[in-house]
Design a protein around this nucleic acid. Structure first.
Lengths: 330, 330
DNA sequence: TCCTCGCCAGAGAGCGCTCCCCGAGCGGCT
DNA sequence: AGCCGCTCGGGGAGCGCTCTCTGGCGAGGA
């Protein structure tokens, strides 16, 4: 089953290849009756342009690589971040007529693969998601000169990004706990090679600084399991704590579980705040207070950043504001 | 910044284009010293083959479309299914040297886009995810003759798929509830145009049939919110119920919330079983008993089905077995 | 009436690659 | 020694498209 080519369509319509090409590409300098007859031929033959041939000569691919980079153990694997972001990004890129080439950069091998692919000019631009702060990939990709934008800040300073106000959001959460009269407020932080994690921790410290309260920090990796484990450690270190700020909701969910097992009532004994306001936050028992940072908006902003860059426009980081959603856990 | 071509590499290495092509494509009929000198030239120039040119002549694209089809309201949007499946699929396809082109088929427009894209021969095969039973897309795509495999069964009978034993799994869950001595066992079903939902409901009915118990069914759409709502309705319809089987974990989580609000203790007053055993199931309060159906395995099986098909091999549906994971909720 | 200008269709040269085919070279057999 | 056959490198056509350039033709001005 061979697909018709431009030439076949031209023959059918009784015009030249050039004219068919012009019509197909929507150029205006075509007489109406020619356009008409060409369009009919296209329809009758079910003609679809061969993208490979077109790319070969135009040097455009109409494709964008969406690179999702996190370690194999999958810090974000079951994270709503992945689905939310990838979906929002796809939808937006498709609306802009771009194909989405999804690439996972987990191992060193796949990183090299991504780099070669991008350097090979198979895409018009690159969209980065979920990068470790120490990951060399963004810098390597930036060196190819390919237009690029990142969901959240990365280690490469010149890669434009859309991010949320992590520091401000964390401070918001902690101040809320202080207002509720909590005195010993612990934090569960994410992996500190991630900018989000560092900034959220900074916001926690900042808010606490003014209050004269001591900071108590346990390290997690943004997964539920790590949140549960960190909570166990916090309870051991300071049994008198009466509040916890978790750097993301998944860890907050893990913390809730540990608290329940330890017989602590939430929020009576210990108040809990999360970050991200994922959908699951409204379904925990008790429902989780969380800092809402609209990931979909952030994803869309990143896409627009990238599209602007591809068009040759300028780019400046975008910061998405966030707000506190108060539920039962505080 | 222009990339080097085959010809440039050939000149540098002092051999013909043909030889370079052979080396690059790993053909064996090349003398070692030629291979050596070519490889060095490739390295020195940073040569990367132009995929467009290659595709143009070989008619292979080394790309696979992963089509995720669900309505815009996003039945699976926050569903771990999306991230788990898309990740597993990507990883497996990348290992096989295929590019992953992610396409969402939500609106009619995007469905048409997918169809045109596939018909246009831009990919070597199609992988279908999350399709409604009544969706005309699988049949339309099947008509293009493109190799295709589906994650879960679809309405098009001749599309090979990898699925789980939905009927058996549901029956497993319900029999477990019966063994626990439950007498009024309700079900929350998913949207009935999905095969999974229909089959799981069938399993519920089948297991109940032998026991002389009545079935009580409420309709959900696989989201948490719908599970919560369905549970409210079930409590209203039959306040004496003492167990619920939810067709997926997300709805079970919603149901748990409603039960908590209604002051019913789980599992003392009402036992709850879910389906899928997503990671969150271990973190609900109380932790959720669920039918484990390894989605990643299923995704991988689907990929292998597709790859086999692309290679021209035969194909027969694969059914992944499942097991019951018993936790606190029953 | 003739020339110029503008507009629009057609011709054709590549884009970078693969792959068929040819021919050179060499070893083994008669 | 001559011939056959086999291995392996090179030449070059052609994949389907775009885009520049050319050419034809009608309109308008001198």
């Amino acid at each position: 089953m061979k697909r018709p080519t431009l030439e076949v369509v031209a023959a059918r319509a009784g015009v030249s290849k050039s004219s068919v090409s012009r019509v197909v590409n929507g150029e205006t300098t075509v007489a109406p009756q020619i356009r008409e007859v060409v369009l009919r031929a296209v329809r009758e033959l079910g003609y679809v342009p061969n993208a490979a041939a077109r790319n070969l000569v135009t040097r455009r691919t109409d494709a964008v690589a969406v690179v999702v980079a996190d370690p194999p153990q999958g810090v974000v694997s079951d994270d709503p971040l992945f689905s939310t972001v990838v979906r929002a990004v796809s939808r937006e890129l498709e609306a802009a007529g771009k194909q989405v080439v999804l690439m996972l950069a987990e191992s060193d091998r796949s990183r090299a693969r991504v780099e070669a692919y991008v350097a090979g000019g198979h895409v018009d631009g690159v969209m980065l998601v979920a990068l470790h702060g120490t990951d060399p990939l963004p810098a390597a990709l930036a060196r190819t000169g390919m237009p690029m934008a990142s969901f959240n800040r990365t280690s490469a300073p010149d890669v434009p990004y859309a991010g949320v106000d992590n520091t401000g959001g964390a401070a918001l959460a902690v101040r809320h706990l202080l207002e509720r009269g909590r005195r010993r407020i612990a934090a569960i932080t994410g992996p500190l090679d991630l900018f989000e994690a560092r900034e959220r921790l900074e916001g926690y410290r900042e808010a606490l600084r003014g209050s004269g309260r001591r900071s108590i920090v346990a390290l997690g990796d943004f997964t539920r399991a790590s949140g549960a484990e960190a909570m166990r450690q916090l309870l051991e270190d300071d049994p008198a704590l009466d509040a916890v700020f978790a750097s993301n909701d998944l860890m907050a969910i893990g913390a809730l579980r540990t608290l329940r097992e330890a017989g602590r009532r939430v929020p009576e004994d210990v108040a809990v705040v999360g970050f991200d306001d994922i959908e699951a936050a409204a379904y925990t028992a008790p429902a989780l207070t969380s800092v809402r940072s609209p990931m979909a908006d952030q994803a869309i902003a990143t896409v627009h950043l990238l599209l602007g860059l591809i068009e040759g426009g300028p780019s400046s980081p975008v910061v998405i504001p966030n707000e506190l959603v108060i539920r039962e856990s505080t």
